Amino acid sequence: MSAALGMVDVLEVANRYGADCDGRQINHSILQADDLPTAPFFDAIVLPPNLTGNRGASDDKLHSWIKEQHAGGAIACSACAGAFWLGHAGLLDGRPVTTHWALEEEFSAAFQHANLLSEHILIDDNDIVTAGGVMAWVDLGLHLVNRWLGPAIVSQVCRHMLIDPHGREQRNYRSFRPKFDHADQPIIDLQRWMESNVQADLSVAELARKLSLSERTLHRRFARATGLAIGTYVQELRVEKARGLLERTTMPISEICWAVGYEDPSAFSRLFKSVSGVTASDYRRRFTVL
């Protein structure tokens, strides 16, 4: 409900400034799933986040209503897990879409024909607009204000509500959460060892030697168990460890580079930015907990 009511606040503030500008307004209402109007067709519908774990697979009546509204010209929008309802309504096949990064695996399994791009906070595909995490309704609300009332009103709303509208991506926030729920115990043991020895030699050759496996066998078993190639896994693991050190310590970035297993600070900086979307220094400035 914080998303639904918060978006109402954004639209109401926008309407105040719109009235002072050229009189344009955005009419809006919060609808209940068990009391959906058959008419009229709306300009947009928004499926909000939810914290219940429900994904709406059995909400057939709501799916039909979403599909009818979209067919009648409504922009179908979602924030966070709201994208599951758009998917169950059959609207996302072949479409670029985002949802919360932690739902990536679940969403991809449910909607294999959607083009999930979970690194993005918001994706506007004209008649389908999706936003990422629980609080990404803010980005979605501003996007809709811009669509109907223009950038000048967006700027006024942001100043009024102390919102920073630009420069965010989901990859700035996401965490690396490796899979440990597979049945390959030697690989699990290796993963646990890597967690505690991130600064060690994590080359394929060394890891294969540690398990007394050929490099080819290790490649195959590791990818099958974790879903990631070893090189990608090591990069993600080391960047995640670096994030923690940036958040919780005052260590110089060059020392953090060495602490997570890299010898070349410039190479580490390029890798960190490619994975996180921001430089290590910007990440520390934004996310430090000290």
Rank of each mutant, 00 (worst) to 15 (best):
I30T: 06
L62W: 01
Q32M: 14
F84R: 05
D139V: 09
T98E: 08
D20E: 15
G73M: 01
A79H: 08
L117G: 07
I30Y: 11
L103Q: 11
V10I: 15
A81D: 09
A109Y: 01
I75G: 10
H88W: 07
V129W: 00
L86A: 12
V134P: 10
W148S: 08
L116D: 05
G133V: 03
G82A: 01
N54D: 15
G90I: 07
D60Q: 13
K67M: 15
E104R: 13
H70T: 12
C80H: 03
A71D: 10
G87D: 03
T99F: 02
W137P: 06
L86C: 11
W65E: 04
D60S: 13
L91P: 04
L91E: 02
A74D: 01
V145E: 02
D93P: 03
D59H: 08
G72V: 05
F84G: 03
E105W: 07
V10T: 09
F111S: 01
F41P: 04
L31G: 03
A79L: 11
W137Y: 15
A39R: 12
G56Y: 02
T98C: 00
H63D: 01
A81F: 12
K61A: 15
F42N: 04
F107I: 09
R55Y: 09
A14R: 03
V97S: 08
L62Y: 00
R147D: 10
A79F: 10
D20T: 12
A33M: 14
D124N: 14
G53D: 06
D43F: 01
L142V: 02
A83H: 11
H63A: 06
Q32K: 14
H63V: 00
S108V: 14
S58E: 00
A109S: 12
A57Y: 09
G87W: 00
F84M: 02
G94P: 06
T98W: 04
R95M: 05
N50D: 10
W137F: 15
L103I: 08
I123R: 06
E68L: 13
H28L: 13
E105D: 10
D34L: 08
V46Q: 06
I26D: 07
I26S: 08
L36M: 08
L62D: 01
R24A: 09
H70W: 08
H28Q: 15
A74P: 00
K67T: 15
L11R: 02
D9V: 09
W101N: 01
G56P: 03
N126T: 05
I26P: 00
I121T: 09
L92P: 14
W101P: 02
F111W: 06
L117S: 10
A89N: 03
S78V: 11
K67D: 14
G141W: 05
M135H: 13
N54S: 13
